[in-house]
Design a protein around this nucleic acid. Structure first.
Lengths: 345, 345
DNA sequence: TTGTAGGCGTTATCAT
DNA sequence: ATGATAACGCCTACAA
């Protein structure tokens, strides 16, 4: 009977006795060209067969799939919110989103996950890619696969400095400056940073802004604890905090490290903020529930996602090669109870 | 010069002076059929042109895109973990994942987001769909679009009872039974539930198991507070808790409602668990940080996701129509400090 | 107002 | 050991 199994224009054409091109034009809104009677028959058949266009074909023909490849792990709320922003913006523009990621922290040379994912995306002819670099040592290797194909690439949250790509994230440097100024304003003179992963650009920027501000005041004693792994960092902080002249103010590279710092400070029998002030970064949910509630910087992940997707769409829909955009959204301090004026000496 | 802009088999064929079908076979691992020299030339050209196969075409030809449509909002950690499980399993099988969702709670009739998303997926010819129903009133409408095309559909977290589809989730009924038994064991005689959204099947199951167990003991006084909106539910609980004979044990439909219950109990000047015991559901992160730390049921979202994806793959890769699977993973109680023996009377 | 023909990139089939 | 051809579903020129 019906030769073709799946609904297609050909099948509609066969059933209605018109040419495929007729079906095509009617279904694509050029019905005014045709006799009302023909249109009706075609539309009716399409509805009856539950016809849906095959976008894969359009993709082949036009080279545009209205699809974005997104490589961001939804492992923390912060990241999920970025994805959320991207998603909403893409959906509004009727784009679909592939989501995939490699959540392994360490870049073992035999792990080709990133490459496999990029190939999955390229082979499906996504129009571009939005990704959050894991750290700047690894990711670079795979970027070639993207650039070689001249696919728009938008980085979020973490920039890769050596490379001129579009980037949407937080103004980390300014944040570091802000927090340092705050510590100075509160008369702290013995200060340290605490965190893991200096190969992550956002952390580096925070530290840079922070240190450059502190260094203006020669009376300040400063120690940087940003190690390659948490255990080492914790060990260092534990040792410092035991000393009589321990730091009175700690800038934690993010709120998770602040949780860790809290524990170390409390174990040493010190109080927050009376003995040690703590400033976090990111404003994760339980920052508010910590005791005392953590003072931290609130970022705008949903907004970052939205902006990233908007830029993505702009890049795609203008054929011209636009110069790379770097957008750093200013975070907002959230003052709670982990910060006070220096009580010491 | 090179006529075609993008790398393709045709282009490789042109550059190397062989036929397209030759290129095709060599690139698909049938090189032993050919002269070494030819293979080398073709491979070299492919590498030089950075050739990547166009999977869209394979999709058209084979009807298989190695792609899943996933409709789950990564709005809570629980859901992100489900997505994580699905992702890992799909990636291992070299499937790609479209992710999209409608996070509007209320089903306004002019909101066609769900339908639009399903069309996005269908039009891109996904091999099947994994989704978490928002509630059983709404989603049904759109399922037709999926069934009509005989696409495998796997439900996660929330089943839709009237419908015989594959489902992977938590054993909610057994959980309700368990918690009720626990309350009875702790000699509570005045008990209530607290939550929002009885049109959500998982909640209904929890309540069913809970109530059916309680009803075996006629000495127990029981009130169900499961309303259509949070404000109403809170109002009811607030009123109850003020009474002299307030409930001494509350089963919250999930941990978020437990947060709300905690506040109401504390505002009434009562202590947890001395005056009122609270049992949550889901084990969200800050359950542990609440004061007192919340006793709750831990679910296994990552596992749910993995199982869902495995089932998805099984459905797709066997042509036969398998009977629907319903898998309910048993959650695990996590005892912390919000639960105690009844002190009253 | 409608139809025909060719092509997009790949593969399977049937030659040579 | 290699080529030619048709087909997948859709679209665009170019007829008629």
């Amino acid at each position: 009977m019906a030769k073709n199994l799946k609904p297609s224009m050909k099948k509609i054409a066969l059933e209605t006795g018109v040419a495929e091109s007729t079906v095509c034009r009617i279904l694509n809104g050029q019905s005014k060209l045709y006799a009302e009677e023909t249109c009706k028959r075609v539309m009716e058949a399409a509805a009856r067969l539950k016809y849906r266009p095959n976008i894969l074909v359009k993709g082949i023909l036009s080279g545009k799939t209205r699809t974005a490849g997104v490589m961001i792990p939804p492992t923390a709320t912060f990241m999920s919110k970025i994805i959320h922003g991207i998603h909403d913006e893409l959906l509004a523009a009727n784009y679909a989103m592939f989501l995939s990621w490699n959540d392994k922290e360490i870049a073992s040379s035999d792990d080709d996950t990133e490459l496999r994912i990029i190939h999955q995306l390229v082979d499906r002819r996504v129009d571009g890619i939005i990704l959050r670099p894991t750290n700047d040592l690894v990711s670079g290797m795979y970027f070639n696969e993207i650039w070689e194909r001249k696919l728009p690439l938008i980085l979020v949250d973490r920039d890769i400095p050596e490379v001129s790509t579009d980037f949407i994230g937080t103004d980390d440097n300014a944040s570091g400056v802000y927090i340092a100024s705050k510590f100075i304003e509160l008369e702290h003179h013995n200060i340290c940073t605490f965190g893991v992963g200096i190969t992550v650009n956002s952390f580096r920027e925070r530290v840079n802004g922070f240190e450059s501000t502190l260094s203006k005041d020669p009376a300040i004693r400063y120690t940087r604890i940003v190690e390659n792994d948490l255990a080492t960092a914790e060990e260092k902080l534990r040792n410092m905090i035991k000393q009589k002249d321990h730091p009175t103010a700690i800038f934690c590279m993010n709120d998770y490290y602040a949780v860790s710092a809290y524990r170390i400070i409390k174990e040493a029998g010190l109080r927050i903020p009376d003995d040690v002030s703590v400033f976090g970064f990111a404003d994760i949910e339980h920052a508010e529930l910590m005791s005392p509630p953590l003072t931290t910087m609130r970022q705008f992940p949903y907004e970052i996602g939205k902006q990233a997707a908007q830029l993505f769409l702009k890049k795609i829909e203008s054929d011209a090669t636009l110069p790379p955009v770097k957008l750093r959204i200013k975070p907002e301090p959230v003052f709670r109870q982990s910060l006070s004026k220096c009580n010491k000496k």
